[in-house]
Simulated assay, not measured.
Amino acid sequence: MSDKVHELVQRCRQARDMAYCPYSRFPVGAAVLTAGGDIITGCNVENASYGLTVCAERTAIQRAVVEGHRKFSAIAVTCDIEDHFVGPCGACRQVLMEFGSDWIVYLTKPDGSYKQTSLAELLPLAFSPAHLHKN
């Protein structure tokens, strides 16, 4: 595992430990790697009004955007499930797609093991900003 991927996986695991999830008790952490090499983290933040809950992936993207980032190369996502890899929900996949389809996605387990995939693989035939541009 490259040093940057190792750091990305570690940072998403650390972010998971910061999750606010008193209702689901399902902590999730995410870490995005910007095109410039910065790592921005996020965790899920639940709300008693469940529809207002924000996933870790979207928290990380929103933080990155606030910090001026618009290009990303990878994201690592983790939760507490140990026996298989878990990917982002559909809403998070769509939010990630807003910033391109050629991301590397690392699905990680609590022990730090990971599976590499891509956003294009996780969201085939996606609706993207390109669909809104008239040629």
Rank of each mutant, 00 (worst) to 15 (best):
I81M: 09
S73K: 09
A76G: 14
S101T: 02
G36T: 08
L125C: 11
I81K: 07
C43S: 05
T59L: 02
S128P: 10
L123W: 00
S49G: 14
C79A: 03
F99C: 15
G29V: 01
R70S: 12
L107Y: 06
G37F: 04
F127S: 14
V105Y: 01
P88D: 09
A48L: 09
C92E: 01
V28Q: 12
T41R: 06
G51C: 04
T117G: 07
F85H: 10
I40V: 12
S118R: 02
G68C: 13
V95Q: 09
V54R: 07
R93H: 05
A120Q: 09
H69T: 00
C92T: 03
P88T: 02
S113P: 01
F127V: 11
L107I: 05
D38R: 02
A48C: 08
I40D: 00
F26D: 14
E98G: 15
V77C: 07
S118P: 05
C79Q: 04
V95I: 12
I40M: 04
C92D: 05
P88W: 03
F127H: 14
V45E: 03
H6S: 13
S113M: 00
G42T: 00
T117P: 09
H131M: 11
V105N: 00
Q116R: 15
L52N: 15
Y106E: 08
L33A: 05
L52R: 12
R93A: 10
T59S: 06
A60P: 04
T117N: 02
R16Y: 08
Y20C: 12
D80T: 14
V86R: 10
C12G: 07
I81D: 08
G112M: 11
E98R: 13
L122C: 06
L125V: 05
H69Y: 09
Q94K: 14
T53M: 14
D17P: 02
E46Q: 00
V77N: 03
